[in-house]
């Protein structure tokens, strides 16, 4: 009889084991039940340029938002149609979001839209580029004059001993924009102060972005021409890549000092190799955090700092090597 009991038990356990295997069917994810509901919904709207930089800003803002139980959406991404910044601002207002972070500029339409949105009770924070004339709650970005000073100092060190030179600054936005003017002012004042005996011609130009390959064409034309500047300053990541690629293609590396923007691995690598003389690095993570914090402050206190400055630095060849080495070590 004991044997019968043992046999029965073994058989039962066997059956249970088999049943466990059979029932081992992982349920499909049920998103709505497994996710926490956030208190607010912010959106980040950009001009569609510098996507790598803005992606870092977004990731930082999203992480900071989740820490405050806020969901930050990269607004307009994943849509089958590309909308302009102003269209996205309008859609965000119609979608009744709880806060907007926007890469703005001094465009009047944009300012008007921001004003309408703010008047509807949706706080707006401008990032990297400000719409000073609007009712936005806060601006998060670098001081453009300070940026110009930084460029000026670097130019002075590059032109040491020269009597005359030409510097071409490629504007990120429209030429003549307040921001661009502030940058140029910073460069000129610094050069006048640092190199009073040197005649440096600082020119500004902008790229008419009528197509997605406009920048590449602009720099190709520039490097094909005779009138090359001594120093070329690019204020966006795509422009930087197009500029150094054209310099390589036209065998002009070394004849023009290119100061780029952004600190991606590709750009750092080019700085390390000497193709780029230096690159301006702005702390994207800090930018993302600051944008969300500004909106959170507004919700918490009803007001926030009108200006949140971001730190920046010019990365030269040595620093680029250090940064790349650090990355390799961390990996």
């Amino acid at each position: 009889m004991k044997k019968i009991i043992i046999a029965g038990t073994i058989a039962a356990l066997l059956m249970l084991g088999i049943a466990a295997i059979v029932f081992r069917t992982r349920p499909l994810e049920d998103r709505s039940e497994s996710l926490d509901v956030c208190d607010r919904h912010y959106v980040l709207i950009t001009n569609g340029e510098n996507t790598e930089f803005w992606d870092r800003v977004y990731q930082s803002a999203k992480a900071e938002g989740l820490a405050h139980n806020v969901y930050v959406e990269m607004f307009g991404s994943g849509l089958s149609m590309a909308y302009s910044r102003d269209e996205l601002l309008k859609i965000a207002r119609q979608a009744s979001v709880d806060g907007i972070i926007v890469e703005a500029d001094e465009d009047a339409t944009t300012g008007k839209l921001i004003d309408e949105i703010v008047n509807e009770g949706i706080p707006v924070v401008t990032a990297m580029r400000d719409c000073y004339s609007s009712l936005r709650q806060s601006f998060v970005g670098v001081n453009h004059y300070d940026t110009g000073v930084l460029y000026g100092q670097k130019i002075a060190s590059l032109l040491d001993g020269k009597q005359e030179a030409r510097v071409l600054v490629i504007a990120e936005g429209k030429a003549g924009d307040v921001h661009e003017n502030l940058v140029l002012l910073g460069i000129r004042e610094t050069l006048a102060k640092e190199m009073p005996n040197c005649h440096v011609q600082v020119d500004s130009d902008s790229i008419s972005r009528t197509s997605s390959f406009a920048e590449e064409e602009y720099f190709n034309t520039l490097f094909m021409g005779e009138d090359l500047p001594d120093i070329l300053i690019c204020q966006d990541a795509v422009g930087t890549i197009c500029a150094y690629q054209s310099a390589v293609d036209h065998n002009q590396v070394g004849s023009v000092d290119i100061i780029g923007f952004y600190d991606s691995d590709t750009i750092l690598s080019e700085v390390q190799k000497g193709v780029l003389t230096a690159t301006l690095s702005i702390d994207a993570e800090q930018a993302g955090r600051a944008c969300v914090d500004a909106l959170e402050d507004y919700y918490a206190y009803g007001y926030t700092n009108e200006y949140n400055a971001l730190s920046m630095a010019l990365i030269d060849e040595d620093r680029a090597e250090e940064l790349l080495t650090e990355e390799v070590t961390e990996e």
Binding site: L35, D39, R40, Y71, Q94
Partner: peptide, 24 residues
């Protein structure tokens, strides 16, 4: 459709559709 802010792009898209539709 989802009407709440949750950490999921699809559900956020639902929320946007819902809000936009209500506005519409």
């Amino acid at each position: 459709l989802n009407g709440q802010a949750v950490d999921d792009p699809e559900l956020i898209a639902e929320k946007n559709i819902r809000s936009l539709s209500e506005t519409y």
